[in-house]
Simulated assay, not measured.
Amino acid sequence: MAVTCTTLEQVRENIDRLDRQIVALLAERGSFVSQAARFKKDSDGVKAPQRVEQVINKVRELSHTLGANPDVTEQVYRAMISAFIQQELAEHAALTQPTT
């Protein structure tokens, strides 16, 4: 639950605190993305558009439940997922390259 701030400085301090938590969660999510690359057979498996839509639907529902703006949540998640797909494609390619 968000606290009610009485100054802009308090607002910024709380945003900074949340940013630290969000980046920590992104790092944790990224480590699972890296692990997922090992289980996927090809780049189509990495891109997994049906899974992307499943995640988007899930987070939109969570947004409604938790009082977040579902459109903002979807935009953030689409950007995040796109970035993680690029990371995973690079990692998947490295895993599947023949060693010389």
Results as ranks from 00 to 15, higher is better:
K58C: 12
V11W: 01
L62N: 12
P70Y: 01
P49L: 00
D42A: 02
F84Y: 08
D71R: 09
T65L: 13
A37S: 05
Q10G: 10
F84R: 11
Q50A: 14
M80Q: 14
L62Q: 12
V52K: 06
E13W: 10
V3S: 14
S63H: 03
R29C: 09
L25N: 06
S43D: 12
N57E: 11
T73D: 09
T99A: 13
L66M: 07
E74Y: 08
G45A: 04
E88V: 07
A68D: 03
R78N: 00
E9C: 05
R29M: 06
A68M: 06
R60D: 05
F84W: 04
R78W: 02
I85L: 11
E28G: 05
A48T: 01
R51D: 15
Q35V: 10
A36S: 06
I56R: 00
A90K: 15
V76T: 05
R51M: 15
D44A: 10
P49C: 06
H64Q: 09
L62W: 13
Q97F: 14
I56E: 02
P70K: 00
D19V: 14
L62F: 08
A93G: 04
L8D: 15
Q21A: 10
Y77T: 14
G30N: 03
V3I: 07
Q35W: 01
I56C: 04
Y77V: 12
S82N: 13
S82R: 06
M1A: 15
K41G: 13
G45P: 03
Q87K: 14
S34F: 00
N57Q: 14
K41I: 12
L26C: 04
Q35C: 00
L66S: 11
V11Q: 07
T99N: 09
E61R: 09
K47S: 06
V72N: 13
Q50W: 14
T7I: 04
Y77I: 15
R20K: 11
K47Q: 08
T65W: 10
F84A: 08
T4Q: 10
V55K: 05
E13Y: 08
A68G: 12
M1V: 15
L8N: 08
N14Q: 10
L26K: 08
A93N: 14
Q86E: 11
E28C: 02
A90D: 09
T100P: 10
A83Q: 11
D42P: 02
E53M: 09
F39K: 10
G45W: 00
V59R: 01
V23L: 07
T73F: 01
E91A: 07
Q10K: 09
K41C: 11
A27E: 06
M80W: 09
L95N: 04
I85W: 12
T99H: 12
F39Y: 12
K58F: 15
T6N: 15
V52D: 03
Q10W: 00
A27Y: 05
R29Y: 05
M80H: 00
T96H: 15
L26F: 14
D16Y: 06
Q75T: 10
I56V: 08
V3F: 06
A27F: 02
V23H: 13
G67M: 01
D44M: 11
Q86W: 13
T73W: 06
E13S: 10
T65A: 09
V3N: 15
R20P: 00
S43K: 14
C5R: 01
D42V: 02
A68K: 02
Q50E: 15
D16H: 05
R29P: 01
F84V: 12
Q86C: 08
G30R: 01
E88H: 01
K47F: 13
Y77R: 05
T7Q: 00
T99D: 10
G67S: 02
